Amino acid sequence: MAMLKLLRAPLKYIQGKDSLLNFYEETKNLGSSFLFICSNSGYKNCHAKIEKSFENTGSKLHFEIFGGISSNSEIEKMRKIVRDEHVEVVVGVGGGSAIDTAKATAYYEKCPVTVVPTVTATDAPCTGLSVIYKDDGTFDKYLFYPKNPEAVIVDSKVIANAPVKFLVAGMGDALGTYFEARACSRTDSPSLENGGVTLSAMALCKLCYETLMEYGYQAKLSCEKHLITPALEAVIEANVYLSGVGADNGGLAVSHSVYNGFTVLEECKNTMHGPLVAFGTIAQLILEKAPREELKKVMDFCYKIGLPMTLKQIGVTDEKRVNIAAEKACAQGETVHNLVGDVTPGQLYDAILTADLLGQKYFK
């Protein structure tokens, strides 16, 4: 039987300046006792607005700063709070790790989950999965959920005030969305939701790419000066919603496998997710023999907004080490195998080094 097409998304997506002042209004139907799993900056930048939205409502709020990584022990710690305090709704406030911890906690404790991203560095907020790490910080597994978050509330003011590197990283993650979905669609590979790619999902992925090309640079300039402009709003939506719902329902290919491969290298420990995905996207286009204009457009974009195009920029100085990353990226079960004709570690190694050579030309 052919694979059934499938599309999933968060129940509600809310975005705009000071949207957190509407938090209670948007979530009051979910319960009256909330656990907010926050990153340090998430707590600092959001708790006052959230508390204000709950004034005189009688709801119970518990803010908890989490340990910084979505690890199994961190999830256990949060589950205990949910049980001990009879929490009805779990909320993730912060970056990808805080959000993934909240999603996992809510899933295991059978609570609804709401997401408040404080940076747009990844497309974690809208997806129906979490990346779970071992306690030592190495990748453990993807955890897939039966549904996506109940609500995603993005306060553009919080995003505009966050360091611009997070917006740029999110554009790197979002850059892969269309090309990875296109690759999956060509080979009839399943999306992350394990269904066929719908026309709607492809349209979101394509719009994600077009929005980055159109508004990415201007959004970066606005964000550097903490200005909320239509271009910034457009890119926030591309990074969070279009990329998240797009990747979830469009599938992954080489870009994300390259990220998974490079995470095993010590020297890439501090390189963010999005920039590695962007570099992986250039490698994917090389493997696909993408038209020269398309490759140039993507590389010009990376150069202009400051996404990595060379190995040196992601922290790798020894070419031989790329072999280790390429082997890991091509491990069994990796999404790199969704590409037409499949990819061997040798082919990926050659593509990564070619991407590096092309990238170096920009810095001559």
Rank of each mutant, 00 (worst) to 15 (best):
A2G: 04
R8T: 13
Q15P: 07
G16H: 11
L21C: 10
L30S: 04
F34A: 06
F34H: 03
I37G: 06
S39G: 15
N40W: 01
Y43R: 09
A48M: 09
A48C: 05
K52I: 01
N56E: 12
T57A: 04
K60A: 14
K60S: 15
K60D: 13
L61W: 07
G67Q: 11
G67H: 10
S70R: 09
H86F: 13
H86Y: 13
V87Y: 05
V91A: 13
G92Q: 10
G94E: 11
G95W: 10
D100Q: 03
T101K: 00
K103P: 11
K103H: 10
K110H: 15
V113K: 03
V113H: 02
T114S: 08
P117S: 13
A121F: 04
T122M: 04
D123P: 09
A124G: 12
P125H: 14
S130V: 14
D140F: 09
Y142N: 02
Y142L: 07
F144M: 12
K147S: 15
A151Y: 10
I159S: 05
N161I: 01
A162G: 04
V164K: 09
F166V: 09
A169Y: 02
G170P: 10
T177M: 11
S185G: 01
R186K: 14
R186W: 00
P190N: 07
S191H: 06
E193A: 13
G195T: 06
G195R: 03
G196P: 13
L199C: 02
M202R: 00
Y209E: 11
T211K: 00
L212A: 02
L212V: 01
E214G: 00
Y217M: 05
Y217P: 00
A219M: 06
S222E: 01
C223P: 02
H226R: 15
L227M: 14
I228Q: 07
P230V: 06
A234V: 00
V235F: 02
I236Q: 03
N239P: 08
N239H: 09
Y241S: 10
G244L: 11
V245D: 06
G246W: 00
A247M: 14
N249C: 05
L252C: 10
S255W: 01
H256M: 08
H256Q: 09
H256Y: 11
S257I: 01
S257A: 15
S257P: 08
Y259M: 05
G261F: 01
T263Y: 03
V264L: 05
L265I: 06
L265D: 03
E266R: 10
E267T: 07
N270W: 05
T271D: 01
L276H: 02
G280Q: 10
G280Y: 12
L287P: 12
E288P: 09
E294Q: 11
K296L: 10
K296D: 13
F301Q: 05
F301M: 08
M309L: 15
K312S: 14
I314Q: 07
V316G: 05
A326S: 14
A331E: 15
E334L: 03
T335L: 09
H337C: 03
N338Y: 00
T344Q: 10
Q347S: 11
D350C: 12
A351N: 11
A351T: 11
T354G: 06
F363L: 07
